[in-house]
C-alpha cells in the first residue's frame, strides 16, 4: 500500500514537472506572437487633420489616414440627388447618403479609399480618373463600381466604401480618427 502511494507520488512529480515545462513554453510564445501586433507609435499616430477649404464643389482630394488613402469629396447637388434617388433597401449594403455623412454637411462625403473587395485604391478621386458606371468610384482591380455616395452597386465588393470616424473641428478642418 505504502509502496503504491510512493509510485503514484513519483508519477505525479514527473507529470507536474512536464506540465511546468509546458506552461513555460506557452509563456515564451506569448511575447513572440504579440511582438508582431501594431507597436505603440503606430497605434498613437491614428488621427489626421485635413484642411478642406480648397476643395471646390464637384472636386475630391485624397488624404492619408493610418497609412491608407481617405477620399474627401465635395458633392454637387446633382450627385446628392442621384444618391438620394436610389431606394437604399434595394442595395447590397443598404445605407442612405444621410447615414454616410454628417448632419448639415451632406455634401461632404468622406470615405476610406480602400475597395472593400481586396483593398485596392478605387479610381475617381483624382482629376480625370474614370468614375465607373454609377458616377462615384471605380476599382480597376476587379471591376467594382461605387455610386455617388460611394455605395457598392456592381462588381465583387461586398460593402460600401467605409466611412471612418471623423468630425468637423471647424468649417474648414476635418479631424479623422
Amino acid at each position: 500500500m505504502a509502496e503504491e502511494d510512493g509510485v503514484r507520488r513519483r508519477d505525479f512529480i514527473n507529470v507536474a514537472a512536464v506540465s511546468a515545462a509546458g506552461v513555460a513554453g506557452i509563456g515564451v510564445v506569448i511575447p513572440l506572437v504579440s511582438q508582431m501586433s501594431a507597436s505603440a507609435d503606430v497605434l498613437a499616430a491614428s488621427t489626421t487633420e485635413v484642411d478642406i477649404s480648397s476643395v471646390q464643389t464637384g472636386q475630391a482630394i485624397k488624404a492619408i489616414f493610418r497609412k491608407q488613402p481617405v477620399f474627401i469629396r465635395n458633392l454637387t447637388q446633382r450627385e446628392i440627388d442621384a444618391a438620394n434617388a436610389v431606394d437604399a433597401a434595394s442595395l447590397r449594403d443598404p445605407q442612405t447618403l444621410e447615414e454616410r455623412t454628417k448632419e448639415g454637411k451632406t455634401n461632404w462625403l468622406i470615405t476610406m479609399g480602400v475597395c472593400t473587395h481586396l483593398g485596392c485604391v478605387p479610381l475617381g478621386a483624382g482629376e480625370g480618373e474614370p468614375r465607373g458606371e454609377f458616377g462615384g468610384y471605380f476599382c480597376p482591380c476587379h471591376g467594382s463600381h461605387y455610386d455617388t455616395a460611394a455605395r457598392i452597386r456592381k462588381g465583387p465588393a461586398p460593402l460600401n466604401l467605409q466611412v471612418p470616424d471623423y468630425e468637423f473641428t471647424s468649417d474648414t478642418v476635418v479631424t479623422i480618427g
Binding site: P31, Q35, S39, A40, D41
Partner: peptide, 13 residues
C-alpha cells in the same frame, strides 16, 4: 531604439 521602446515586448526581445 524603436524596437525597445514601442514594439510590444520589444525590450524583452
Amino acid at each position: 531604439e524603436h524596437t525597445v521602446r514601442d514594439v510590444n515586448w520589444g525590450w524583452l526581445m
